[in-house]
Each structure stands twice: as structure tokens, then as C-alpha cells.
Design a protein around this nucleic acid. Structure first.
Lengths: 234, 234
DNA sequence: ATTTCGTATATGTATAAATATTTAAAGTCT
DNA sequence: AGACTTTAAATATTTATACATATACGAAAT
């Protein structure tokens, strides 16, 4: 009954603007009318137009600069957003039963490559955890993780035989910055055994470095089982 | 001189809220004070608090529901955002000189696997383009692309000998939806030659399906040269 | 005990009106 | 011509206020 015939919500404006870009009415690189003019056109306030355009810029369709105005981006730099789930959730979402197994856990001095990679001081201690994540009895992911003892002193008391280091870390220490890398690597003999693939097979691999206020917390390599695909829609 | 001692911008509020979460003052799963109370505390309007909390929720730190309030997410589902650049830009950003070469371009009936993958009607026509992207004289990416003729009729007149199909598509047809997948695949003999790696080597691979208002536009497989790493920070 | 319904409450959005900030562009002075 | 300064135009943010909308929760009805 109270059906609104107005088209002036910021969402409607977003849709309209996007439609005009897609239809070619507003060509790439061209300047849009300014916020006030659009507010007049849509008979709403500039605030509402502002929100619509701000979000479209955030989504990578527009570029906005004070005084210069708002223009249509020629090559919409749409960003793919991947939600990085915890292994357990990912396995369960795929209908499997999650199982965790510790492979090894040692405290030692950081190897040179890790010292370099994380910009540690020479001789800093780390805890090295290797473990497996299964979906049922099928290997799902092999995890090779290093935790910087100085940044996470509690790790010396941690017991990773029942809980994975990732879940433990999330419950224990916050983080402020993350670097995430994906690549294709080769299964060496050991990894091939863990993941139950032939030696030399391609393995989808993720690397994750986590910092807390500039201090390195952990470096993890995650090797996924054969056939793994990381997908997103947008 | 005019240094503001106020801490009431929405950005300051975001920082403060985040700090309280990190310090444990606001525990995971706990409810935050409501917007009005926070507005009073920060001596600003509810609008400002709203924006701060809305963005923090967007960034994956908070969960908000009407009437239920705002609560701290226990496992912050921080999303990795990858900006997917065009090959040319990526090569140039790495300091290389971009070079493009067409390998083949044919119009044909869509193969069965593609018909299934894109939910085409049996017998629909596609243009199949294969091409290489180089950084200087080093192979950078091998691209294997299929363009649905019915969705992009202009493709029949397109000439891909000078311009890559991706750049052409971006200039020619808009898109509304994208599915992006990454995986590790094995270089077969042909691919190994193109990318100048040994047969059987792991190859970081992207697949991209693009739609325009529900109609499939294009399917592309992108095979990256050895050593490619896709990285993001957040 | 279970369902239905009403209502209060917290977030969501919009308006109107300022002030703040950035910066392109024009003007001024060597 | 080049360097600095001013101006004005656009976006960015905040305030104050109102109304909209979803929904948790409790009361009433079955």
C-alpha cells in the first residue's frame, strides 16, 4: 500500500549511475555532474548522492577527487574479495568432517631464510609447527608454520596436539597486518606423502605472514590437496 | 598550531573501537553500547558513530543487527582483497616492457565442456582466442579465451592481432558478474613450450567467467609463468 | 506448550545546513 | 619562463533531526 514510487535512496542512485555507465551514457574517463547537480536531478540531498558515489568509488567504478570532480574509471579496477576461512570451516562447508593431526612441534632458533623473510633479529627463537588438516580421511591441507616466540611468549606453553596453531593463534593473539600470497608449488617427496599425491605434482600453496603493530607474529605455508580451487564471485 | 585535540571524527572512533577490541576491553561476542550511548561518550552525533561502526562491520570486525545491536565478531572474517590488474599494467608495474602476441583465433561451435560450464544452449558459437603476454622477451602469461558470439556479436569483426582479447573486451562490453578461480595446474607439452618451462611443471592458473546481466560473455584461462606469486596486504 | 501478535528498541536511511579540506586553475611576482 | 600565492570549486565530514525498518522479546491467544 505504502509502496514508494520514489527512486531516491542511495541504493537507487547507485543503480542508476551504474546503469548510465554501462549504457555508455557516461563514457569512461568522462566527468560526472557534480554532487549538487545530481542531488537536484534526483531530488534528494547532496548527502545521499555523496553516499552513492562514495560507495561506487569504493567498489572501483569511479574516481573522485576534490575540486576535480568524479569521473568514470576507464578500466574498472574491480577488486576480487576472497574470504579466507579457517580450514575447519572450509572443510565443514564442503560437507566433510574436519580432523586435525599434529606432525611435529619444536622450539628452535629461526633459520636464516625466516630471519630474512620476517626481518627478525639474528638468533631469535621460533616455534615450528607442522600439521595436517583432513576432510574425513582425505588429506585437505598440510600446514607448515613458524611462530615468533618473542611476539607470542605464551606459545612456549601451548600444546598443539589437539588444537591447530591457527585456531590457537586466533584465540590468543590479535593481529594488525597480513600479507597473503598464492602460488603453485611442486610436491616434494615428503609433501607428496602427506597430501597423498605423486611426487612432483602441482600443489596450490598459500603463504601468510601476520604482524601485530609491526612485530612479526607468524609465518605459515599452507599446501592444499590436489584439485583445490580458490573461488570467488563478484 | 591549529592542532585538533578532538577525537571525534569517524576515523578516530574507528581507531578507538578497534583498540578496545584488540585490548580485550570489548570481548569477542560481546555487545557494544548502542550508537546513542557511544555518541554521548564521544560527544558527537549518532550519525558519526554509525559511519564508524558501519565501516568496521564492512571490514569484518563487527556484526550489526537491528534491535539486536552491535557485537564483536569472535573470529574476525577479514577478507583479502586482490586487485586484479590487466596483464599490461602488471608487467609494467614490475618494470618490464609489455608485449602481446596472438597465437590463434577461430570461430567455432562451443565444445561440450564449455557449453556445460557456461550453461550455453547446445550449438552456440564462440570465438576461441589463444595468446601470449610477455615481459620483454620473457613469457609472462598464456591466455586461452572463449568469447560467446551471441553475447558479443561485434567479436566476429574483431581483430586480435594487435590488441589482446581482454583489453578489447573491456573497451567493448561491460559486465555485471564475475567468477574468479585460482588453482595450480600442470604444464602439458604445449603450455610448457609457450611458458618456457619443463613439461609437468606446476603452473599458477586463473580462470575467469564473466557475465552481463545473466548472459555469459567470456571464459578465460590464464596460465602464469614459473615463479608467479599473487600477493596482497591488508 | 506453542503460536500469534504488538511493541519497544537498535540500526538504517534521509534531510537540511554548516564547516573542513583538498586541489585545479588563475593570478602575481620575480 | 618559473615559482609562489590566492581563489574558488568540488568533495569530505559533521551536526541536528526525523522517519523507516527489522526484530527480539514478552504478552495474549490458542
Amino acid at each position: 500500500m505504502t509502496q514508494s514510487t520514489e527512486n531516491t535512496s542511495y541504493k537507487d542512485i547507485k543503480k542508476t549511475v551504474l546503469a548510465r555507465i554501462r549504457s555508455g551514457e557516461w563514457q569512461p574517463d568522462s566527468l560526472l555532474p557534480n554532487e549538487s547537480e545530481l542531488a537536484t536531478e534526483f531530488s534528494c540531498t547532496r548527502t545521499t548522492v555523496n553516499r552513492a558515489l562514495r560507495e561506487l568509488a569504493e567498489e572501483g567504478y569511479l574516481e573522485r577527487r576534490r575540486k576535480a570532480g568524479t569521473r568514470v574509471l576507464s578500466a574498472p579496477q574491480r577488486q576480487a574479495r576472497f574470504t579466507i576461512p579457517m580450514v575447519r570451516d572450509e572443510v565443514e562447508a564442503l560437507g566433510g568432517t574436519y580432523r586435525y593431526a599434529l606432525v611435529s612441534c619444536d622450539q628452535k632458533t629461526a633459520p636464516d631464510w625466516l630471519t630474512a623473510r620476517l626481518a627478525l633479529s639474528p638468533g631469535q627463537d621460533v616455534v615450528h609447527v607442522r600439521c595436517m588438516h583432513y576432510s574425513g580421511n582425505t588429506p585437505f591441507q598440510y600446514e607448515d608454520r613458524w611462530i615468533v616466540t618473542d611476539s607470542v611468549p605464551q606459545v612456549k606453553q601451548a600444546n598443539f596436539s589437539e588444537i591447530g596453531p591457527n585456531e590457537w593463534l586466533i584465540q590468543t593473539v590479535p593481529f594488525t597486518n597480513v600479507e597473503l600470497t598464492f602460488l603453485a608449488s611442486r610436491a616434494d617427496a615428503a609433501l607428496a606423502d602427506f597430501l597423498d599425491v605423486a611426487e612432483g605434482e602441482p600443489v596450490f600453496t598459500g603463504e601468510r605472514i601476520t604482524w601485530l603493530e609491526g612485530r612479526p607474529v607468524t609465518f605459515a605455508k599452507m599446501y592444499f590437496a590436489a584439485g583445490y580451487r580458490m573461488t570467488t564471485q563478484f
